[in-house]
Amino acid sequence: MAKKVLVIDDNEQDRKIAERYLKKSGYSEIVMAVNGQEGLTKVDSDNPGLVILDTVLPDTLGFDVCRKIKDSKGSQAPVVIMMTGTVDAVDAVRARQSGADDYCVKTADGGPLLAALKNLSDKNI
């Protein structure tokens, strides 16, 4: 569980909420990025094992960032969970197509994110 996690989200509150639930799930080393460009840079520099990625970013779309991460790293690419503030079936499909490993909705209680993280640990990724 010593994986480094990168959270890419422009919303500060959402980053904090994510951080809390990540820590609750046992991830201690958490790096933040507030836009797509910074996120990609930190993927290179910090080499995280897991990326929590918002679908809507100020400079680009999360789907594009996801595609770039997966393309540049190949088999060495980190696990990507995409999070969204909207509830839309189309977004889930796009996330899959962009190469994301999982997709969840942002909620106050963090239920979907916790479920996704548990799902990951079950698969022992």
Binding site: N11, Q13, D14, I17, G85, T86, T107, A108, G110
Partner: peptide, 17 residues
């Protein structure tokens, strides 16, 4: 509605915390 969600989520989450 969409834009209201994020702050509401914040309020709810931090109230929860």
């Amino acid at each position: 509605s969409h834009d209201l969600r994020a702050p509401l989520r914040g309020v709810a989450a931090f109230a929860h915390f």
